[in-house]
């Protein structure tokens, strides 16, 4: 025993040698996320008459390893908004907690949680922009689906840099290459969204998820889909891709057994 309370209960230096703090970095640059680790791939979403449909598969990859196959990347907020996350899964979980605390705080107000999807999107884009400006980005690309202040269907995107944009159909990641052309062909932008039914929208998203499963090596055949309409949010989290056809693979070298 000595007169230095700070050393009480610690391994004695005379016996164990001085404590080696090298693993606790206190100086040098902070270890900010410089690249994502466990990631989710595409999110796809489309507006329809009276609402928005959004889908994402249930995979979290660790590089090329399909690490977690039961990760829900769609998150509901309040009773008429859904956020779909692409990118880093730990950052997604952080944002999930952030939204959880906002939801709780809002629900203490006299009117309940009145934040709509548009408000939520503004908030998220500001969080992303603040973090990128601190060089400590949240490595995500999110789609926010729901309704705006006028009760119109709302669909918008925000990414790790704080860039925002909205369109009748959106997709993140590989979906931007594979799903957007499909959606643009099915629902041309000159065609008003009032002419797109909920069933058409859902069928289109399933088709997109299927094409992504065919062609995106970091995708999965189990997925989540959410439909936001005036009746509320309808989320299905353990969907399986149906009616797959691998006939196209026959003609491609590299799939299946080669007979050359």
């Amino acid at each position: 025993m000595n007169h230095f309370p700070e050393s009480w209960g610690r391994p004695r230096n005379d016996i164990y040698g001085p404590y080696n703090p090298s693993f606790l970095q206190t100086t040098g640059p902070k270890a900010h996320t410089q690249s994502p680790a466990v990631t989710g791939t595409s999110v796809v979403a489309v507006k329809f008459n009276g609402g928005v449909a959004i889908a994402a598969d249930n995979l979290a990859s660790y590089g090329s390893l399909a690490r977690f196959t039961d990760v829900k990347r769609l998150r509901t907020f309040g009773d008429s908004a859904v956020v779909g996350f692409g990118g880093d899964v730990s950052d997604m979980q952080y944002i999930d907690r952030l939204l959880g605390s906002i939801d709780i705080k809002e629900n203490y107000s006299a009117h309940g949680n009145l934040l709509n999807a548009k408000n939520l999107h503004t908030y998220l884009s500001k969080v992303f922009y603040k973090r990128r400006s601190e060089f400590n980005p949240l490595w995500n690309h999110v789609l926010v689906a729901g309704f705006d202040g006028n009760g119109q269907p709302f669909l918008s995107s925000a990414d790790l840099l704080g860039t925002t944009y909205s369109a009748p159909h959106l997709a993140t990641g590989f979906g931007a290459h594979l799903a957007i052309p499909i959606l643009r062909r099915l629902f041309p932008e000159e065609k008003p969204i009032e002419e797109v039914s909920k069933e058409q929208a859902v069928a289109a998203l399933k088709e997109c998820i299927k094409v992504l499963w065919y062609r995106d090596a970091r995708s999965l055949d189990s997925y989540s889909i959410a439909v936001i309409s005036k009746d509320g949010i309808e989320v299905k989290e353990d969907e399986k891709l149906e009616a797959q056809s691998w006939a196209f693979a026959e003609s491609i070298r590299g799939y299946g057994a080669q007979t050359v």
Partner: peptide
Amino acid sequence: MGYQPQNEGVGYSFSQPTSAPIKEHSFYP
């Protein structure tokens, strides 16, 4: 007791500064 008193501060061993090699930032804002 074999204890070497430290001259300044509380002297927790883990507050000792260590020099880490400067890492290059790869995030482009």
